[in-house]
Structure formats: C-alpha cells, structure tokens
C-alpha cells in the first residue's frame, strides 16, 4: 500500500512502525537549544491545540504545530528535524498571538529549522535565496524588463541599494561568510543537484 508519509532513513522508518518512545530518543539539549534560539518559553506548552487550530497550513497538510511543540518538550530531535512538514509554516504568527501560555510556537519552528540547517537538513529553495542575496544583495534581483519600466516612471534604472552601489557587497558577503552560510549553502545545493 502506498504510504502517505515516511522517512528516507531506514532507522527512522523502523521507528515509525514502533509506537513506543524510549528514553534514548530524548535529547534534553534539543529543548534547551530551541529555547536559546527562539527566546520563548517553549517548555510551558500544555498541548491545548490552539496553535494547530489557528494554523493556515494545518487544514491542507499533515503539518501539526502542536505535535512539534510536544516533540520539542520531549526532546525528540530526530523526529522534529527530519519531518518534511517542518518547512510548511508560513510564519503567520496566528498561533503566537493566540497561545494561552505566551509561547511563540512560530519562533520554535524557526529555531528548529536553524538546527535542522546546522545538520544539513534543509530544502534547497531556502539556500537559493541565500545565494541570490550573496550575489546581488537582493533576494529578488532586478531585471531588464523592470529596469525599462523604472526609467519610464522617472526612477533610476536600478534602485539606490546594493544594485546601484555594488561597493557595499563585500561587506554583506563578509557578514554571511562570518557564519559560513554561503559555503554550506553551495555544498548542499551542489549535492542536491548531483542527486537530481
């Protein structure tokens, strides 16, 4: 039978069949790490589900923010980071506004994505934006059609940003390189493209 959901890692796949959770699956450092990155009281979650009820992604996918909140409190790092649903949060902050425990579940998701990226688990579209910004300073760079329209409107053909002042690009690249993000992005994108 076709499976709706699964893991590419056979070890994780085996665990998906096993309904029990064991002590060794829990990594308390994960909870702590998420807390430090998200700067929110993630451990206060009492699983009311207001977050999932507010979520625009929930009705059209298997993404359940409440599940991620629970996994976080339980320290279930692998389950959290290898679940493709992690990347379906649109960061609309509805859950954050409505959480009765004053938690920011959105920021918990962002923190988990940061940790996933550190482990090299990240969809390439995120990295391609990084590459674009490294290249031009803009996530959405200018193009010739748009340049012509800008001139018609009486604007400079390129905006007065790094597009007009490329001498500021080295500084921006320095910031990105400080955390080796471009280097890592290039490696992961090249790997992904090699495997088609």
């Amino acid at each position: 039978m076709a499976k709706a959901k699964g893991y590419s890692d056979p070890k994780m796949e085996e665990k998906l069949k096993d309904r029990y959770y064991y002590r060794e699956y829990s990594n308390p450092d994960f909870t702590k790490k998420v807390h430090d990155l998200a700067r929110t009281v993630n451990h206060m979650c009492f699983q009311c589900g207001t977050c999932t009820g507010s979520c625009p992604s929930a009705p059209r996918s298997s993404y359940r923010i409440r599940l991620f909140m629970r996994r976080n409190v339980m320290g279930l790092e692998d389950e959290s980071l290898t679940d493709p649903d992690l990347w379906l949060c649109t960061t609309c902050y509805c859950c954050t506004d409505r959480c009765p425990r004053d938690i920011a579940p959105t920021d918990v998701i962002m923190a988990m994505r940061n940790i996933a990226y550190q482990r090299g688990i990240v969809p390439v579209n995120f990295l391609k934006t990084v590459q674009a910004i490294y290249q031009s300073g803009h996530g959405v760079p200018n193009n010739d059609v748009n340049r012509a329209v800008r001139v018609r409107l009486g604007l400079a053909k390129d905006p007065p940003t790094t597009h007009s002042y490329p001498e500021f690009l080295p500084g921006i690249r320095q910031i990105i390189d400080h955390w080796h993000v471009k280097e890592k992005a290039d490696k992961i994108v090249a790997e992904a493209e090699k495997h088609g």
Partner: peptide, 29 residues
C-alpha cells in the same frame, strides 16, 4: 530619503529559517 547601499532586509523566511545570526546582522547593517 533613499538609503544608499541598503540590501535585502534580508528575507525573514529564508534567512530566519537558516541562520538567525546572519538575519540579525544583515538587518542591523
């Protein structure tokens, strides 16, 4: 008044998801 040499904000979805530190630093610039 235009901000000479400003860059992408940077994109909170893309950069925030990958490395919050870069997001803070680029926005701060």
């Amino acid at each position: 008044h235009p901000m000479k040499g400003a860059s992408c904000c940077p994109a909170p979805g893309a950069f925030g998801s990958i490395d919050l530190n870069v997001w803070y630093a680029m926005a701060a610039r």
